[in-house]
Simulated scan of single mutants.
Amino acid sequence: MVNPLRPDVVRLYKNLLYLGREYPKGADYFRDRLRAAFAKNRSVQDPEQIRQMIARGEYVARELEALYHLRKYRALKKRYYED
């Protein structure tokens, strides 16, 4: 039986994998941690629990985006303004 939430999980995984390319510790480090996190929860079947995990993953994605935007802002600020 195919889980109806599978496309959402795959979309989240691909999005996080894409965001991990700019991770400060490196893309390989991020990819390994991401794989481990998804593999650890592979056996979960409860749809409500899967939705909660998807929500947590989307939160992490938003936090990563905020981190990257802040890093770019700081780089631009450092380039154009003296401390």
Rank of each mutant, 00 (worst) to 15 (best):
A55N: 06
V2M: 08
A66W: 08
N3I: 03
K14G: 04
A37L: 08
G20C: 01
E22W: 04
K72N: 14
Y68H: 09
Y29F: 13
R21Q: 14
G57L: 03
L16H: 00
V10K: 07
E58H: 08
Y29E: 10
P47A: 04
A66R: 08
E65I: 13
E58S: 06
L67W: 01
Y18R: 15
I50V: 13
D46K: 02
V2S: 10
P7E: 02
V60G: 00
Y59V: 07
R56E: 09
A66I: 04
Y59E: 13
F38Q: 01
E48D: 15
L34Y: 05
K40A: 11
L16V: 03
F38G: 03
V10E: 11
R35K: 14
Y59G: 07
G26L: 07
P24R: 10
N3V: 03
V10L: 15
N41H: 13
Y18L: 13
V9A: 05
V44M: 05
Y59S: 08
E65V: 10
A39F: 06
L76R: 14
V44A: 02
L67F: 08
Y29G: 01
P7L: 04
A55R: 01
L76V: 05
Y29C: 02
G26M: 11
A39R: 15
A36M: 08
Y23C: 04
L34H: 01
R56F: 09
N41K: 12
S43Y: 06
R79N: 07
L5N: 03
N15V: 06
V10H: 04
P47C: 06
L5R: 00
K25D: 11
A37E: 09
M53T: 01
R62L: 11
I54P: 00
R42Y: 10
R33C: 04
Y80P: 03
P47Y: 07
L76D: 14
L70G: 03
Q49P: 01
D46T: 04
K78A: 13
V44Y: 00
Y73V: 05
A61I: 02
A27N: 09
L70E: 14
L76G: 07
R35N: 15
A61P: 01
R33G: 11
F30H: 07
A66S: 13
E82Y: 09
G20Q: 00
K72I: 12
V60D: 04
E48N: 11
F38Y: 14
G26K: 08
D83Y: 12
M53Y: 08
I50L: 10
M1D: 09
K40G: 00
R62F: 07
K25H: 06
I50H: 02
